[in-house]
Simulated scan of single mutants.
Amino acid sequence: MTDKLYNDPSLVEFYDIENGWTADSDYLNTMASGRTSILDLGCGTGLLAVALAQKGGKRVVGVDPAAAMLDVARQRPGGDRVRWVEGDGRTIRLEETFDLVLLSGHAFQVFLTRADQLAALKTIAAHLSPQGHFIFDSRNPGVEEWKEWSPAESERVIVHPGLGEVLAWNDVRHDPGTGVVEYDTFYRIAADDSTCSAQSKIAFPSYEDLVSMMEEAGLVVEQWLGGWDGRRFDATAPEIIPIGRLGVPPVSPPR
C-alpha cells in the first residue's frame, strides 16, 4: 500500500511538525560519534541524516522509498552533504558497507510480514562493515500502544508555518490475527475548515519474533534496549531496540 502520509507532499509537510528531533535522534547522534560511514535506512525527511553529516568527515547515505520525503531532505540546509537514494529497504543493495546502519522513527514497523522483516534485516547485514553496528526501534506489542490512538485520546492541535492552526487526530484498528495495526491520520485546517487524511499500516513484531530472525539474517544482537533512555528491554518496556553486529560466519571443518 502506498502510504499518502509519506508520499503526498501536502501531508509530508506535517511530518517534521509531528515528529521532529526526539529522544531517538539524541541517542543516535551520540552513537554516531566516532563513526566514519552511516546508512540511514528509512531516512524520511532527512533531519537526522543531515545532522550526522554535519559533524564532519562522515560518509552518510539516506535511503527512503518515498520520493516526497526525499524531496524535503534534499532541500534541507546541509542536505547536499548526504547522498540520497530512493529505494526499498527490503531489496536495496548499495554495494558498499557502513560503520553504522540505523532505522529510526519505528521505520522497521512498515515491514508487515515476517518475510518482509527478514528481508529488511538481511539488507542491514548486507551493508554492515565487519566492525560495524546496527540499531533500530520497534514498539513493544505487549504494551499495546495503539490503544492510545483513538480519536478521543489522540486529538491534538499543531501549528503549521503556512496553514496556521491545525487540529489533528488518529483512528485505529488492530488485527489480532496478523498483529498488524491500521491507523488513519487526519488534519483539519482551521483557516478553511478543510481536512486531509491518510491511512497507514504497521506491524508489531514481538521480541521473540525478532530474536528468531536475527541469526537467519546473519546478525548478532549485543544488547536489547527497552527505550531511548537506555533502559534494558523487559516485557513492560515501550520499545524493542536491538543493537548488534554481523554474525561470525561458521568455520568449515578441516578436510
Rank of each mutant, 00 (worst) to 15 (best):
S150N: 03
W228Y: 15
N7G: 09
T2E: 14
S37C: 06
A125D: 08
I189P: 05
E18K: 12
G87R: 07
G42T: 10
L48Y: 08
V101F: 12
V143I: 13
G78R: 08
K201C: 15
L94P: 04
G42R: 03
T113Y: 09
E182K: 02
W169L: 04
D24F: 10
A191D: 07
C43I: 05
A198M: 08
G179H: 09
R232Y: 03
R156M: 03
L5P: 00
L121M: 13
P250Y: 02
D3C: 06
W149N: 01
H127W: 06
G162C: 04
A73K: 01
L5T: 12
E182A: 09
R255P: 14
A115P: 09
D26L: 01
R90Q: 15
V143Y: 10
G244K: 07
R81F: 15
S154E: 05
E239C: 04
L11W: 02
P242S: 04
L167Q: 11
C196P: 00
Y27W: 10
V50W: 07
R139K: 09
I243N: 11
A51G: 10
P205Y: 06
I38H: 05
D175W: 07
Y207P: 13
P77K: 00
I124F: 15
S194K: 10
G87N: 04
S200V: 04
A191E: 13
V101A: 13
I135K: 10
R232L: 10
L52Q: 08
I240L: 15
F136C: 07
I158K: 02
V143L: 11
V12H: 07
W21Q: 08
V221G: 13
V72E: 06
S212K: 01
V110W: 10
P77G: 01
W224V: 09
R245W: 03
D71M: 08
R74S: 12
G62L: 00
C43D: 12
R231Q: 11
T113Q: 09
F204H: 15
L5I: 00
G46N: 09
A23I: 00
A235N: 05
T2A: 06
V85G: 12
S154C: 04
P141M: 00
E96I: 03
R255V: 15
I202L: 15
R139M: 03
R35L: 02
G132T: 06
V159D: 03
A73V: 10
G79M: 02
G218F: 02
D184V: 02
R81S: 14
I38A: 04
